[in-house]
Write a protein that binds this DNA or RNA. Structure first.
Ligand code: FES
Ligand code: FES
Lengths: 134, 134
DNA sequence: TATAATGATAGTTATTTAATATCATTTATC
DNA sequence: GATAAATGATATTAAATAACTATCATTATA
């Protein structure tokens, strides 16, 4: 069980890389080569990031991706929410069914409160922090 | 991604149930019927709990399981560690390989610190708490 | 001795995650 | 205008993990 999955991790790496390179646009092929991430995989991540308005794209020959948001305006929790289904770690044994105990379940309340803490922590951690602290 | 998985959840339910019943021994068949948990599944959980010295067993006809520890001496984190591979939520993209950045990785440090928090919280939450607060 | 229980362990199925593939559309360059 | 190089959209396959089941040996009671 990982808190940060591979997609989110790659997304962070890509953003950090693009910021450091400081070029106008970088193609998916480029990123795949430089960061050693499988091409179709990074494509999907880049497409998602542009749909989410974190990257902007230029199509066609010579096109590629560039940062639309500043690293200081991108928090880790944003990326986690995009790639990890809103980070729902809430415990309930009855997954899709309605749980009879859902209002009284103490364990659930505990886990909810932990989830809140995690979201606050990752909400205060921007990609810029990750770059600066390195 | 769930913080508490099904095994851990069932384990908690079983301990709570056994405490409330306050009988000498209860068989796996009994628990399966009463709590509506698949028989082979609950068997495995009970066996694990007895190996971990949380339950004691009596084999043979009329045998079964009984609590060895008091609910106040069983913490949620103990159960999580037993059933969820020590709850290692630490982020590292290079799973089994050695990660070159493992000492400097800021994200990893963040996740480690979150993990520490979770373990403390669940370490202070005993099964007795779960019973009492209900 | 038959029965009802756990001990130990192997095996199967379902679900989720990771990774790949395909084809249409766009744009710069020759 | 033709070609090449890029993304958009979406479908498919493969690997890993989690959930669940099955089997047979051993033990103890009636
Ligand atoms: S088991 Fe459903 S909310 Fe706790
Ligand atoms: S990527 Fe390996 S420790 Fe962060």
């Amino acid at each position: 069980m990982l808190l940060i999955n591979r997609d989110t991790d790659y997304a962070i790496r890509v953003i950090v890389y693009m910021f450091k390179m400081d070029e106008k646009t970088i193609s998916a092929r480029d990123i795949s080569d430089r960061l050693d991430i499988p091409y179709p995989f990074i494509r999907k991540i880049l497409q998602t990031l542009s749909k989410e308005n974190i990257l902007k794209t230029r199509r066609g020959r010579g096109g590629g991706f560039s940062l639309k948001k500043l690293p200081e305006d991108i928090t880790t929790i944003q990326l986690v929410k995009i790639f990890q289904d809103d980070m729902d770690i809430t415990h309930c044994i009855f997954k899709d069914n309605i749980c009879p105990d859902i209002d009284s379940c103490i364990l659930r309340k505990e886990v909810k409160s932990i989830e809140k803490f995690i979201k606050e922590r990752l909400g205060n951690l921007t990609v810029e922090d990750l770059i600066r602290k390195q």
